[in-house]
Design a protein around this nucleic acid. Structure first.
Length: 446
RNA sequence: GUGGGUAUAGCUCAGCUGGUAGAGCAUCGCGUUGUGGUCGCGAGGGUCGCGGGUUCAAGUCCCGUUACUCACCCCA
């Protein structure tokens, strides 16, 4: 089988060193999620196709269908999930009798979308979600709480400056309805192109969609509003439009902004042009841009969904937010060179003097490992220069020389500095900074 | 799904108006039984994405196809 191996578009795979950086990020996210009291859940990769495609008219074409190579077509039709929220809503319905509400869960898993890959967009990608779901009623304060979680996560990752743009769909919906626009979703999608095609572009699309010039102007006036406090309320009122749904949205968003300002200052910005997210969002929506490259797209999005988890009798409203881990790392690792301090977890390489005494080296390694030091034994009893080179190529910082110390003891060498000291495998531990591979940002010294 | 670009060694690419493939980096070996990153010498590795056509002759021209890539759609 000498067929040529080629990458598959949209399915990203890292080399070992970059994978270590990715794991560091994933561990950090998990740690913060747990600090905030979210319980872990893992759902199967597949859902019945109908459950997935019900979520939006365009969803179908993105869904990967799953079938057995030799299977008949009489089986239940399955599709890979395209996000983690839809499977979670199904999970809640399925286990509603066993879950305790309000239920807080985090979920870090891949998702799949069959769309054409592009920069920051993959066909297989990891998402890290937190959601809070409740029975019947969901208090509004959770919508602000999620911002604090995100601020905590991003505060520990080398993402630089960022802002979570927050809007409430009810503001747009109420506003549009008040001025006579019926196609709310369609209008949102057009307005959402503002950053790409500008006001003139949006205006002409709105006119083409059947809006009057005045309607288009007012949509743009609403979309221009962006404040870092609650002053957006006055700005909307100044537009002279009123509608009960609009009022509801303004109140909710103002409340979210107030809480965010107190506990995570500078993170949130009320941005009335933000519309994105899947169709199931009904209230607050979030979208997170990195200041270093706002055009890259949102690396963390989500919102409130009131009717996604419903079995017809009972409805469980929820709110959640999803970190696009693959997208984030496509930028940080793929483009900016974020990486790990070494390409292996091993902190120590135990040299082998000769094959006859390899068992001594194995015992030393076991002693180090028993105290939590990731350790490797040299593959060959090559010249010490070669063994050091073996460690150096992999970024392993320490080489252990059995019997090289005073009075027959061992010695360990920091191959970066060249310093070598006598050491005992029963007690020696590397400095905490060297115990595990760490993140290395491009700017910092090697 | 629609439109544009690209396709030569593991990687990044050269190869002018057609005449039986090159560089840098990487990899491996050696540099007189041991503590490396520099340096020197050497080696391996390519049916030029695949199929067809034009031609005495094609990596080099034409057609098709597949893959990758960028933009649109949509979205993390």
């Amino acid at each position: 089988m000498a067929s040529k191996v080629t990458p598959i578009s949209g399915f990203q795979e890292w080399l070992p060193r970059e994978r270590i950086a990715e794991q560091y990020v994933l561990d950090t996210i998990r740690e913060v999620f747990e600090l905030h009291g979210f319980a872990s859940v893992s759902t199967r990769a597949v859902e019945p196709v109908e459950r997935l495609s019900d979520q939006g008219e365009d969803a179908d074409k993105e869904i990967y269908a799953v079938s057995r190579l030799a299977g008949g077509d009489d089986e239940a039709r399955l599709g890979l999930h395209f996000d983690l929220t839809v499977p979670f809503a199904r999970y809640v319905l399925e286990n509603s009798g066993k879950l305790t509400f309000p239920f807080r869960r985090y979920q870090i898993q891949p998702a799949w979308r069959g769309e054409r890959p592009q920069r920051g967009r993959y066909r297989e990608f990891i998402q890290a979600d937190v959601d809070i779901i409740d029975a019947a009623e969901l208090p509004g304060h959770y919508e602000a709480e999620l911002l604090l979680v995100i601020a905590d996560v991003f505060g520990r990752l080398p993402v630089g400056a960022y802002q979570v743009h927050v809007n409430n769909r009810k503001i747009c919906e109420g506003f549009y309805r008040a001025i006579g626009i019926e196609d709310v979703i369609g209008t949102l999608r057009i307005v959402d192109k503002l950053d790409k095609i500008g006001e003139d572009g949006v205006a002409s699309l709105l006119l083409a969609a059947g809006c009057s010039q005045e309607q288009a102007d007012r949509c743009l006036a609403l979309a221009r509003i962006r404040t870092s406090d609650t002053s957006f309320v006055q700005q909307v009122r100044a537009l002279g439009v009123s509608h009960p749904v609009l009022e509801e949205g303004l109140t909710h968003l103002a409340s979210v902004m107030e809480t965010a300002a107190e506990h995570a200052p500078g993170v949130a910005v009320a941005d009335l042009r933000i519309a994105r997210g899947l169709d199931y969002y009904t209230g607050t929506v979030y979208e997170t841009m990195l200041e270093r490259d706002p055009g890259y797209g949102s690396v963390c999005s989500g919102g409130r969904y009131d009717a996604l988890a419903s079995d017809g009798k009972r409805t469980y409203p929820g709110v959640g937010i999803s970190i696009g881990v693959s997208r984030l790392l496509g930028l940080l690792i793929g483009e900016e060179g974020l990486t790990a301090s070494r390409e292996t977890p091993a902190a120590v390489l135990v040299a082998v003097n000769d094959e006859e005494t390899r068992s001594d080296s194995i015992r030393i390694a076991a002693a180090l490992r028993s105290r939590g030091v990731p350790t490797l034994v040299a593959p060959k009893a090559a010249k010490f220069g070669k063994q050091i080179q073996f460690a150096d190529r992999r970024g392993i910082p320490y080489v252990w020389f059995p019997g090289a110390g005073e009075r027959g003891g061992d010695a360990v060498k920091d191959i970066r500095s060249g310093d070598q000291v006598d050491a005992d495998a029963a007690s020696w531990t590397p400095p905490a900074a060297d115990l595990h591979a760490t993140l290395v940002t491009p700017g910092s010294s090697d």
